[in-house]
Simulated assay, not measured.
Amino acid sequence: MAPTEPTAGRTTLSVDVEGGQLPADLLLPPSGLGPGIVVHQEIFGVTGYVRSRAEALAALGYVVLVPHFYWRLGDPVVAEGADGLPEAVGLAGRFDWPAGVADGVAALQALRSREEVDGPVGLLGFCFGGGLAFNVAAAATEAGSAPDALVSYYGSALPNLLDLADRVTCPSLHHFGLDDAYIPQETVRDIEAAVTARNDDVTFLRYAGAGHAFDNPSPVFHHADASAQAWVATEAWLLEHLPV
């Protein structure tokens, strides 16, 4: 299945969370109705890249919510690439992870309650967001509101979240580059063993020549073949597990 073209148009809404209002972008599919997906940002914030992936999912038929998880830090957006990486790492270091997980659970519940959502609701995240989405899935499951599917692109926090793996009961898809220096293959194998220990509906895909953040369009990270293959696989997997 070929990648879909992005659609234009989004609205901004607020989600009630502990300590304030979580801003989030809402994107609707052409039909106005569909299953839901909460997209979890990269370490750089809600960038144009993250928005473009959300738009592509909406074009595919999903109601998409993109929470601005850095809202407690002023909702910054950092330039992607080597120049912006130190600032982005600093933001991630200041990010209140437990509060962010709680925000993610609230965003999942808020999307489920939208009248435009017709069907199951899943989570999708990139890098920082890939690990955050995994943790949100575990927390939401524990709270009795498990997501229906999870897609994690090279979740950077996953090596530190393996004690939560048995709480992620929904089907999940995980993407990793074989040349990822940040998450080496030995660590990926540990992640896979933990995630599949009690869940049969788990898919791990690996891409030759691809490093960390290979889907990000910045030349520092981007691997064109891996990005294209992973997105086609993501669309096909989502259409199977969250049919539109």
Rank of each mutant, 00 (worst) to 15 (best):
F176R: 00
E142K: 13
D201V: 08
S152E: 08
E186V: 08
G131S: 07
R206T: 15
G130Q: 07
F126A: 04
L164Y: 11
V202E: 10
T234A: 07
H174F: 13
G155F: 09
V202Y: 05
G177P: 01
P120N: 11
L173A: 11
A107D: 05
W231E: 11
R189T: 08
D180I: 05
S172L: 09
L108W: 05
P217V: 02
G177A: 12
A208W: 00
T196H: 12
E186S: 15
E115V: 09
T234L: 11
A213S: 15
A210Q: 05
F204Q: 00
Y207A: 03
S227R: 11
A149M: 04
G211W: 11
T203R: 15
A149R: 05
H174N: 15
A224Y: 05
L150K: 03
A149S: 11
S227G: 12
L111D: 03
I191H: 03
A102R: 12
G177C: 02
G122K: 03
N216T: 10
A137T: 09
F134C: 06
T234N: 12
A102T: 04
V168D: 01
V105R: 04
A133G: 13
A146I: 00
Y182F: 10
A236V: 08
A193Y: 07
V151C: 05
S172P: 02
R206V: 04
A143N: 06
V151Q: 07
N160L: 07
Y154M: 08
S218V: 05
A230C: 06
N199K: 01
W237S: 02
H223T: 04
R167M: 13
E235P: 00
A230W: 02
F176M: 08
E192N: 13
T234S: 09
V168I: 13
A210R: 04
L150N: 02
A137F: 13
T234D: 10
F221T: 00
V188Y: 10
H222I: 01
H175C: 07
S172A: 15
S218L: 00
A138M: 04
A102K: 07
F214R: 05
S152D: 08
A197V: 12
P219V: 04
L108N: 12
A224W: 10
P219A: 03
G100S: 13
N216I: 02
S218A: 14
R114P: 03
D148M: 03
A102N: 13
V195W: 07
L205S: 14
D201T: 12
A139Y: 08
D215Y: 00
Q185H: 10
V121N: 07
E116Y: 07
G131V: 04
T187Q: 15
